[in-house]
Amino acid sequence: MNTTIADRLSIAQSRINQAAQKCSRMPDEIKLLAVSKTKPISDIIEAYRAGQRLFGENYVQEGEQKITTLRAEYSDIEWHFIGPLQSNKTKIVAQHFDWMHTLSREKIAQRLNDQRPAHQAPLQVCIQVNISQEDTKSGIDAEDVIALATKINQMPQLTLRGVMAIPTATDDIQVQQDEFGKLQRIYQQLQQHFDNIDTLSMGMSADLDVAIANGSTMVRIGSAIFGERS
């Protein structure tokens, strides 16, 4: 039986609700970020009509094209940039996106701050932490988070909201638990030092339950909603 994007969104939301209830959390504490990278605009509109408002994009130019196409008619979509960002493309993210999840360098933060138009609300940002300590992964070391957060906190066109991580790709529940637990402790530390810290961005389809059990407030789901990349 073929399922629609609306069907798959409903299934994803049910998974979130069940995972929240399992660890005695309120389901509305956890936001669903629909990862729409490489998917056509028609899929985003279909998800929007099913009630989805938060969309994540990994590629700068693709995201810019979708935002400029949809912004007039779908102005309440919240656009999240969740991919790696080179310094020569910061202006696009600063001008078009609402959120940036993968901030790990002061240079990038400063460029985003300086290039954010003054008439727009500050760009909401998360610091990406390399909790798996893999050489191939982006992100800052755990011990450097507070220092970067302090710098970001001084930039008026950015608002620090929390932390994000992409953990080890593994089915080992204990590894997932260790890494998510580590990020949760960093998040709680940030909450003690800074205002507005309310976002623990971690968890995807494969590790959603463990992420939510460790306090995730935003899970990123792509192919389980939109289907595999064609």
Results as ranks from 00 to 15, higher is better:
Asn153Phe: 03
Lys107Tyr: 00
Asp209Arg: 12
Asn130Glu: 07
His96Phe: 01
Thr150Cys: 07
Thr159Asp: 14
Asp43Gln: 12
Met100Ser: 10
Gln176Ala: 03
Gly63Phe: 08
Pro122Ser: 12
Leu103Val: 08
Ile212Leu: 11
Ile82Lys: 00
Trp99Ala: 04
His119Pro: 00
Lys151Arg: 13
Val93Ile: 15
Leu70Trp: 13
Val60Pro: 00
Glu57Ser: 06
Tyr187Met: 02
Gly83Gln: 00
Ser230Gly: 11
Val125Phe: 06
Cys23Ile: 08
Leu112Pro: 08
Ile41Trp: 02
Lys39Thr: 06
Gln189Lys: 14
Thr38Leu: 05
Ile77Gln: 05
Met100Ile: 00
Val93Gln: 01
Ala121Pro: 10
Gln18Leu: 14
Ile45Arg: 15
Ser14Gln: 15
Lys89Met: 03
Ser42His: 11
Ala50Thr: 04
Ile173Ser: 10
Ala169Phe: 14
Gln52Val: 01
Ser132His: 02
Ile140Leu: 15
Glu73Ile: 00
Ala47Asp: 10
Arg8Gln: 12
Leu112Gly: 07
Thr90Val: 02
Ala165Gln: 09
Met218Gln: 14
Pro167Met: 07
Ile131Val: 15
Val210Tyr: 07
Glu143Phe: 09
Ala19Asp: 09
Asp198Trp: 02
Ile30Val: 13
Arg15Lys: 15
Glu179Ser: 03
Gln177Lys: 13
Val125Asp: 12
His80Leu: 03
Leu33Gly: 05
Arg25Glu: 04
Glu134Asp: 13
Arg49Ala: 14
Ser138Thr: 07
Ala19Tyr: 13
Arg116Met: 01
Met204Gly: 01
Tyr48Cys: 01
Ile77Gly: 01
Arg25Cys: 03
Lys31Tyr: 07
Asn58Ile: 01
Leu70Lys: 11
Glu179Pro: 04
Ala211Gly: 01
Gln95Ala: 13
Pro27Arg: 09
Ile30Lys: 09
Tyr74Leu: 08
Met164Lys: 07
Tyr59Val: 01
Thr4Met: 06
Ile166Gly: 00
Ala50Trp: 12
Gln18Arg: 13
Asp195Leu: 12
Phe194Gln: 07
Ile166Pro: 02
Asp7Arg: 02
Arg116Asn: 01
Ile30Gln: 09
Ser87Tyr: 00
Gly83Ala: 02
Asp171Ser: 15
Ile152Cys: 10
Met202Pro: 03
Ser132Phe: 00
Glu134Cys: 08
Gln124Lys: 15
Asn88Lys: 06
Gln13Asp: 02
Leu32Asn: 11
Leu70Gly: 09
Tyr187Cys: 03
Lys22Arg: 14
Gln157Glu: 11
Ile77Asp: 04
Ser10Gln: 14
Leu190Gly: 05
Leu33Asn: 06
Gly227Phe: 04
Gln128Asn: 05
Ile186Ser: 05
Leu112Asp: 03
Thr3Phe: 08
Lys91Arg: 14
Ile108Asp: 08
Ile131Asp: 04
Gln120Met: 12
Ser223Gly: 06
Ile197Ala: 11
Gln65Gly: 02
Gln65Phe: 00
His80Ala: 09
Ile11Arg: 12
Asn113Asp: 15
Ile92Lys: 14
